[in-house]
Simulated scan of single mutants.
Amino acid sequence: MEPLSQQTAADRIIKTEPFESASKATWRDYIEITKPGINKSNLIATFAGYWVAAGIHSFQLVTLLITLLGTALVIAGSCTLNNFIDRDIDPLMERTKTRPVAGGRIKPAVALWYGISLTVLGLLILAFGVNLLAAILGFIGSFVYVVIYSMWLKRTSTLNTVVGGFSGAVPPMIGWVAVTSHIDLNAWALFLILFMWQPPHFFALAMRKAEDYRAAGIPMLPVVKGAAETKKQTLFFTVMLFFSSLLLFFTGACGWIYLVLALILGGIYIALAWKGFKTQDHEKWAKQLFFYSLIYLTAILFAMVLDVTIYDLIQML
């Protein structure tokens, strides 16, 4: 693989603000800058964490809605701040060059204060509407994503994907502590599933968009170490995900329905990861893996909810 240029994206555009001719932002831009797709998947994970902890018996609609609102605002604010931080590198990539700040529709200063306001509001809602622990988890997740990932590791190390995954694994824990007010082995099991899911998901994306990342000077694993190493690490994390997903059964949080579905979903994921060693069509393999990663996440979260719901209904009969 060709080495990354010694001149980083920040060196090339830093201190330039090509936003003087910015077009007027629409309300859609203020939604887009919060990355609603990421927010939606994280809220599903938050709901799953809440439902596994509460089930039918301890379910409280108001608490759930406040938890989802606070979490959504923290995620929205953090994603907005990510857009602000990445305003120098987003214009260099086809995938991101039309984002509201990169495209010049929202000024950087506006994005900065919009992101801070959403994040702070979300943390306050979690602290006063749910509990302090939920707010602390929200703050940690936001800090890791905005400061450690966006401002530091994304630009300096291939570990960016792994360490950044910490923030994406926090939402189900927030859902759990909204019910229990404490962190236990079940909460960590939920954390591990989301944490182990993210590297193979983003490795697949990085394989598909390697030239984009190379152009922007971002040291993603496929850019720095190539496809072979990326496939090895993808397989490693899918295996770790497989075993992590079984923990909820052994802690007693979920039952046999969940276990069977987790075994099937995880087995398919490992098979797809292994398939990468047997093909030279990296683009096709990465596309398949990326698509399945989305199916897997939705399905494993659904399996948790389904299992707890059926078990509770049986108990009520």
Rank of each mutant, 00 (worst) to 15 (best):
E283Y: 13
D90V: 12
Y50P: 11
L68R: 06
T156P: 00
L112G: 00
F47D: 03
L137S: 03
A206N: 05
W197H: 12
I33F: 06
Y149W: 03
T80K: 00
A135I: 05
T158F: 02
F250K: 09
A9F: 08
K278D: 11
M1D: 07
Y269E: 11
A48K: 04
P171T: 05
W188I: 15
D312E: 13
G266M: 11
G103C: 07
K35H: 07
S245N: 10
W27Y: 08
T298S: 13
L246S: 01
G141F: 04
Q315C: 04
F277H: 11
V144C: 02
Y311A: 14
I314A: 02
V305W: 06
S142D: 00
M151D: 00
L126S: 06
R28E: 06
I268F: 14
A25I: 09
W274D: 08
T238N: 12
K232I: 14
I148T: 06
G267N: 07
L235D: 09
K24T: 14
Q198V: 14
W285G: 13
F250P: 04
L263W: 05
A72F: 05
R155S: 01
T46S: 09
A206D: 08
C254T: 15
F236D: 06
F302L: 15
E283Q: 15
L124V: 13
T26P: 00
G115H: 01
A135L: 02
V260L: 12
F290W: 10
T34W: 01
L289S: 13
L272S: 10
D88G: 03
S78T: 12
N186E: 14
A228H: 13
F250A: 08
S157F: 01
K209M: 12
K231L: 11
V147R: 00
D11I: 07
P108Y: 11
F166G: 03
D88E: 13
C254N: 13
Y292K: 05
I38R: 03
L123K: 02
L68Y: 06
E2C: 01
G115P: 08
L69D: 02
T161H: 03
I38A: 01
A187F: 09
V170N: 01
A22D: 02
K232W: 06
F202V: 08
F291I: 15
C254D: 05
R155G: 02
D184C: 12
L124R: 03
A45K: 04
S21A: 11
A215E: 05
I31A: 09
R87H: 06
S244N: 08
I75S: 00
V163W: 04
V110F: 04
W274L: 15
M1N: 07
C254K: 03
Q7T: 15
N83Y: 02
L248V: 11
F249V: 06
D184F: 05
T279W: 07
I56S: 13
V147A: 04
G255M: 08
P36G: 01
E32F: 03
T80A: 06
A53D: 11
A169R: 07
D90A: 06
V144M: 02
L153I: 08
T8F: 03
V239E: 12
F139I: 07
N39S: 06
N186V: 15
K40Y: 02
Y149Q: 00
I310H: 04
I314V: 10
F243D: 12
G267K: 06
T71S: 11
I66R: 09
A135Y: 00
S181H: 13
R214Y: 04
I193K: 11
R208I: 15
I31W: 00
